[in-house]
Computed example of a mutant assay.
Amino acid sequence: MIKNKQVRKAIIPAAGLGTRFLPATKAQPKEMLPIVDKPAIQYIIEEAVQSGIEEILIITGRNKRAIEDHFDRAFELEMTLKAQGKYDLLGLIEEIPNVAIHYIRQKEAKGLGHAVLCAKQFVGNEPFAVMLGDDIIDAEVPCLKQLMQVYEDCPGTILGVQEVAQEKVSSYGVVKPKVVKERLWQAVDLVEKPTLEEAPSRLAVLGRYIIEPEIFALLETTEPGRGGEIQLTDALRKLAQVQPVYAYEFEGRRYDVGDKQGYLEATVEFALKRPDLREGFLRYLKKNWGELVNGGEK
């Protein structure tokens, strides 16, 4: 019987090489690429804090030091801004979430399942959240908070899902669903990056999880799967055989900022949401729209 404990901790895997954004990510973590003027990973951490998370573990790799520096204090910069009276800029620095953040390195690229396993000691024997940095979700109620609300009523592992286009199912872990109630299914099975023929539905797991700690014992015995990596989906399949695993269709606009198209969409749409940028940026787009869509031809 699963005890309904509070979800206090979150894991953010950030050890990937970011090859889809080379050469920009040759010496800079992809998680630090800005969406307008804020690093992508900051959006994820803000969501965690707004959802009530108390401690965060970021799984890093080589060349990720900039992430630690960003969430550390910058006393010299802060003092300089104060001395210059630039309190508007100082305010932006102070908006960076002040939450307990820990770091551990994933020394080998063995997949998402292995990255989660690296957090075993940090998590202990309590439920925890996993938040993938490639997925930024713009929602009235933070996406992770939505999952936490579901967890209160249905203790067990909760997967954040949305329907994706049929041609996109091969890019995700996909759920075989059994209806529980509106927007909520029991995940009878999961398939990692299925072909169209293998896909049991179009409900794709999109970067937000609440997971029970029993997953660690399963990850320790999970053999490498697709891509020769230890897949979190494979361990979740085993977990679903012994305790409830649910799929919740969260509300909100999800951006895949690990993909160039998704990154550009997020940048444009977040800029248009900004009161200080919207009017001028919208005026620019309207004025130059014809030339932009025609590849520079007037």
Rank of each mutant, 00 (worst) to 15 (best):
M1C: 09
M1F: 15
Q6E: 15
R8Y: 10
A14L: 05
G16F: 03
L17T: 15
P29A: 09
M32R: 04
Q42D: 13
Q42L: 13
Y43R: 11
E47G: 08
Q50C: 00
S51A: 03
S51G: 04
I53C: 03
E54V: 04
E54A: 03
I56K: 12
I58C: 03
I59Y: 08
T60P: 01
T60K: 04
R62Q: 12
I67D: 12
E68F: 08
H70C: 08
L77M: 12
L77E: 11
L77V: 15
E78Q: 10
K82T: 13
K82D: 10
K82Y: 12
A83M: 13
K86E: 11
D88L: 11
D88V: 11
L89H: 10
L90A: 05
L90Q: 09
I96P: 10
I96L: 11
A100F: 06
A100G: 12
I104H: 12
R105I: 08
R105E: 13
R105C: 07
E108M: 03
K110G: 11
L112V: 06
L112H: 08
H114S: 15
H114L: 05
H114G: 04
H114M: 13
A115Y: 02
K120G: 04
V123D: 10
N125Q: 10
E126Q: 14
F128W: 02
G133M: 09
I137P: 00
I137Y: 00
Q146W: 00
Q146K: 00
Y151D: 00
E152F: 03
D153Y: 08
I158F: 02
G160D: 04
V161G: 00
Q162L: 09
Y172D: 07
G173L: 00
V174R: 05
V174S: 05
K176P: 00
K176T: 00
K178S: 14
V179W: 11
K181M: 12
A187G: 10
D189L: 09
D189S: 12
D189Y: 02
L190A: 01
V191Y: 04
E192I: 01
L196K: 15
A199V: 10
P200W: 01
S201C: 01
R202L: 14
A204T: 04
Y209R: 13
Y209W: 14
E214F: 08
I215D: 01
L219G: 04
G225F: 07
R226G: 08
G227Y: 04
G227M: 05
G228A: 05
E229V: 13
I230M: 07
Q231F: 07
T233A: 07
R237W: 08
L239D: 13
L239N: 03
Q241L: 11
V245I: 00
A247V: 09
F250R: 06
G252K: 02
G252I: 12
V257L: 06
G258N: 07
E265T: 05
A266R: 09
F270R: 14
F270S: 13
L277C: 00
R278E: 14
E279L: 06
E279C: 02
F281G: 06
L282C: 13
L282Q: 15
G295C: 02
G296W: 02
K298W: 08
